[in-house]
Amino acid sequence: MSTALLSTHRLDACYGDFQALFGIDFEVGEGEVVAVIGANGAGKSTLLKTVSGLLKAPREAVRFAGEPIGGLRPGELARRGIAMVPEGRRLFPSLSVEENLLMGAQSGRRGPWHLDALWRLFPMLRDKRAQPATSLSGGQQQMVAIGRALMANPRLLMCDEISLGLAPIVVKEIYDALPSIVAGGLTLVVVEQDVGLARLVSHRVYCLQEGRVTLRGASAEVTRDDISRAYFGARAEAAR
């Protein structure tokens, strides 16, 4: 795909002496929804952190909208249109729901997302706008985290494990909002533990294992066998 919005090229990433990613080639087209799956510690979150600037990377190893962006500061990347819903939500505890959302707008990008649009997307947040964000239920907190990222009016939204620790019905409620989120042409990368859900919402899927890509393909075409092999081993066979 020559018109990739985001791509990584033989991307390595390390936490100190520990190498977490090995030569990752990853591509997301404009308007595409891509799911990243894999076991705990496979490197999914590390990949997102590297793209969003929280971890260092060589400049040319990550490209966004045609420009090399590896290792740029997170704030600079936010201004260029990369937003992330971090693992564990990371809401600001001393800020109210509304203030948390407003923090998302800090990057100063214009677009379809503003407070009123968010109240329409997640109506239950409106009644709780003045409450401390961390006093909400887990699902509502996740909505705030997603809303905060949308407030940046990003071109690329990356969601790290938004279903983690939530009841299935709440997860469904959140994923039901996805179509209206991507309707405006937003590009989406979701890291997801729930493989079925990941395939359901995405166009394409990547599977990581121990810091390497072990499977990539159209979500509708990859088989359960492909995935379990990519998840649990036989990496050489599946990766090619």
Partner: peptide, 23 residues
């Protein structure tokens, strides 16, 4: 104020504040 919000957010979680576009 907006500045106060930025102060509190940065105090809460510097890394996430930077993700939001703050320096």
């Amino acid at each position: 104020t907006a500045l106060g919000r930025v102060f509190r957010a940065t105090s809460d979680d510097r890394e996430t504040a930077e993700l939001m576009g703050l320096d």
